[in-house]
Nucleic acid binder design. Structure first.
Lengths: 206, 206
DNA sequence: GGGTTCCGAAACGTGGAAGTTCCGTATAGA
DNA sequence: TCTATACGGAACTTCCACGTTTCGGAACCC
């Protein structure tokens, strides 16, 4: 019905969409550092070495820019192969790599920056949940289910709840206690909470 | 040196300090509902049926008003007697009362509203931690230690970590999943995570 | 009772950030 | 080559919330 239906061929310079990821990444960085409310569009533009007009040409508002940035957030090592050592503990621990820790810290900071919006915008809450926390939980669930098939843990447990333990505790530690989420902490959570909840006694107590 | 050193006796109407708690409570309500950045001093004044000038006569800025409100937050049932049923599970479950659930939900929402400030203001982070989350953890720790003395759980566990499980999971559930933190959920956390982490097998599986 | 201060309410000044427009330059289509 | 658009950069407008001041009235001390 509109003139754009049949004639989208406009003259003039085309938008350089290769810059989109840089802008969205800059938005995520500023978001992680300052939080949604204190973050300004100027900060994002400066960080991305772009003009503010360029940003508003592509996203209608600050809110939509942030939503898109979260939605396009690199899913991290989703495609990385799941470890399969035959031992659930080894599988879980082998997932804790320096790269994975840094990635997790950044995502945690992004979630913190979004916190004030999560209760206001259900759409953003759903997007953030699906792109940031779900992938991590899904990986844990996959490891758990393989352990069930091996007979290492018994069926019937609330795996969903247990798979979310590490992220919840990590968020708590960083936000409230202000302590770093390092390898020792994550291994400690696995041994002290996750494995016991799965019915696996700590076999390396000393 | 100033005239206030020796002569604090000023004439005129005195400040009605009985209104302080109402104002601080209104501030906490608005904070829980809208979050720190979207909260305005006008909202607090209107909610408290007070003038904005009255608020600024007592607190020099919005930030200090909020800090004071959090610091003066009613510590809830800190003085309520600890349950002592002889069974750790009974002790933990008996703490879950309707009043306690509502109180916890409100405090969780306040923490959410503060989230954007926690990483900015260490003073506020410490205050919020001490008045909101620590009391709950301390109660759990006390119950745990009595269970250690009874021989119900073995010593040497990371009780500090385990005592913070329920609050961390409750925050996660409300903020990310948007589901209510009700009695069933809290009991489920105790049975599926807390007690196993303490080395107590679930004795009521069926 | 006079003077001083507090009260709630409303108007006011100010700064900062969202969103818009303009500029000079660069790039693509006709 | 000419025109229309995108680009980075900066000025600009608009809006909103902090924080201040003013006002009529009420409470308290002398």
């Amino acid at each position: 019905m509109t003139q754009l239906d049949t004639a989208p061929a406009r003259p003039g310079r085309k938008r350089d969409h290769t810059r989109d990821p840089e802008i969205l990444n800059a938005a995520l960085d500023v978001l992680a550092e300052t939080g949604y409310d204190r973050m300004t569009v100027d900060m994002v533009a400066t960080r991305a070495k772009a003009g503010k007009a360029t940003l508003y040409r592509r996203w209608p508002s600050k809110a939509e820019l942030v939503i898109d940035a979260v939605a396009c957030l690199k899913v991290g090592d989703r495609d990385a192969p799941l470890p399969d050592t035959g031992s659930l503990r080894e599988d879980l621990v082998s997932q804790i790599k320096p790269h994975s820790i840094d990635d997790g810290q950044r995502k945690l900071r992004i979630m913190t920056g979004l916190a004030s919006m999560l209760s206001t915008s259900p759409e953003l809450a759903r997007t953030a949940n699906e792109t940031i926390v779900r992938p991590r939980i899904e990986r844990n669930l996959a490891l758990f289910e393989r352990a069930v098939e091996r007979g290492e843990i018994e069926p019937g447990l609330d795996l969903e709840l247990i798979a979310g333990l590490s992220t919840a505790l990590a968020a708590n530690r960083m936000l409230l206690e202000g302590k770093p989420v390092d390898r020792d902490f994550l291994v400690g959570v696995i041994d002290a909470v996750v494995l016991p909840a799965l019915g696996i006694r700590a076999d390396i107590p000393a």
